[in-house]
Amino acid sequence: MAQLCLGLATSHLAHIVNARQLGDPAQVAAFDAGYRRLAAALATAAPDVALIVSAEHVNKFFIDNMPAFCIGMFNAFSGPAEARKRKDYGIPYRPVPSEPHFARYLVERGLDEGVDWAIAENWEVDHGIMVPLSRLDPDGRHPMVPVFINCAAPPLPSPRRCYAVGRWLGEAIAGWDRDKRVAIIATGGLSHSVGTAQQGWIDEDFDRRFLADFCAGRDEALAALSDHEINATGSATGEIRSWIMLAGAFAGRKAEQVLYEPIRGFETGCAQCIIA
C-alpha cells in the first residue's frame, strides 16, 4: 500500500526569483536556506509522486467556471504562465512530469466518497507551483500532481472543509493499493495582500500563531479559522488553505518550523515547514 512519506509547506511568492533585491539580504538568505532544507528533505524522502497543493492567481481558473478544488490529471504540465509572457521572469518555462493514474485514483475515490474534485486535463500552472518547484525540484525528478484550491474568488471553501479534504487525502493515499511513496507539498501564504490597499502589511502576530498551531499539530485551531479572521490579515492570506489541507492529511502530526521571516520588501510573511 502507498505511504505518505513527507509533507512540505512553503510560501510561493515570485520575489525570491525575480525581485530578490527588494528583500532584506539576511532574510532572503534565510529563505534560500529554507528552500535548500526542504529540497534536501524531498530528495531524502524520494517520493514516487507528490501532490503540490496551491492557490492560483486568476491565470487559468476564472469565475466563469470556478471549482473549489481541482486535480490535474495528465502526463505532464508546464509553467509558469507568467514566464511565457515575461522572458525575464527569473525561472524558465518548463514541463513537469505528472502521474495521471494516481490523479485518476484520487478523483474516482473522491467521487465515491463525497469529495467531488473538478478535473483539469490541461493546466498551465502559475508561480504558485513553479516557483517552489524551481527550488525544490528544478530538474523535474519527481512526478507532481497539481491540486488547486480556490483562494482568489469568493465564496471560498472553508478552512474546515479544506482540513477535511486533507484528512480524506491522507486516508486515500494510505488506501492506494500501490507500493508507492507519496509526498504532499503545500504552497502559499502566509499573511499578505495583493490588489488591495492593505498590500505591504504583514500580520506577524497571526502568522506566528498560525505556525505555532501548525507545528504543534493543533489541527482544530487551524480548521476553526474563519474567512473573516483570515481576510483581516490580508486579502491573499487565504492561500494558507493549502497548509490547512496539508495538516489534515497528516492528522495532528507535529511539524518543524524551518523559516518565518516577515519580509517587508516582499510584502509577505514568509514561512516554511517540514512534516517528516
Binding site: V58, G195, T196
Partner: peptide, 25 residues
C-alpha cells in the same frame, strides 16, 4: 474586480508595484 486582476491591470499600466497600496489608499 478580483484583487489579483486589479493588481495585474495596475501593472499593465506600467505602474511600479511598490506604488500600488498608496495609490489605492
Amino acid at each position: 474586480v478580483l484583487p489579483n486582476l486589479l493588481y495585474r491591470y495596475y501593472a499593465l499600466h506600467g505602474m511600479p508595484p511598490e506604488t500600488f497600496a498608496a495609490t489605492v489608499a
